[in-house]
Amino acid sequence: MSTVAVLVEAREGVVTQPTFEALTLARTLGTPVAVWIGEEPAAAEAASLGVYGAEEVRVVAVGDEARLPAKAAAALADATGDAAVVLMISNFVNKEVATRLALATGAGVVVDAAGAELVDGHVETMQTVFAATWNVRTRIATDKAIVGIRPNTTQAVPAETPGAAIVVGVAENLPEARETVVALEPVPAPEGVPLAEAPVVVSGGRGTNGDYTLVRELAELLGGAVGASRDATDEGWISHEHMVGQTGTTVTPALYVACGISGAVHHRGGMQASGTIVAVNIDPDAPIFEIADFGVVGDLGDVIPQAIARIKEVRGA
């Protein structure tokens, strides 16, 4: 079986859920190895990668230097020379890393994939495009394949037989980069589940009028993350990290609740592939209702508190 390398994503040293999803997918494509770029991982974190099947944890100990895509790609190239497939989580930075890695290795790339499988020895990926109105299947024609996989599209399942998760160091051989990071201002980690990987997202738009109390309360009750439209982030009602849409975060939760959001095509492009879509909007002609499994035409100030009370009542019973 060929080697399938998975680029680990860690947040403050802790492996993220999408990494376990990617490892789960990697097991269907070959023998998974994990690639860790950055600070040395803690033993428990390396072991957790084994639980999801990683036979090796290849560590490129370059600290913060790998923030630049050119350097991250070089580190990844050093660690994945034997891999037929390199999987990473599809996000803006990894798209840049994937592009550089592809140019260095001749690999074909698909990003934003919702799944991947081997067909006649080639990797084929599944994606949705045009605001999730089309399904596309793409074959990677080259011997080496790079796939950016969207969070929440594979269910993370521990391996029947855990991988050995042997930690191996990879000599770092980073080139000079043309760019310099001259300042770095950390963004505080999101409260609760990060947007991209949340199983439930409750979003508020202009219709909230800036008050996110109800949106937050419902999100918390459902174990989800808080999202927003661009109008809401532009108003400064909520920080930019919460923006869902084509130029914000793309989400594919099992449940997406849109409160006071009209459903502009830019917004839909980032959430239309969600499992179940629910909308509350005072305007019966709002486009969001065209894609909602369940819609309530009404004022969110009435509908959301009543829904919260009802859920609590049923749970308490």
Partner: peptide
């Protein structure tokens, strides 16, 4: 797909 109009019971 279902769209209901809130006449007091929309949240329920």
């Amino acid at each position: 797909r279902t769209v209901v109009t809130d006449t007091g019971e929309g949240g329920v």
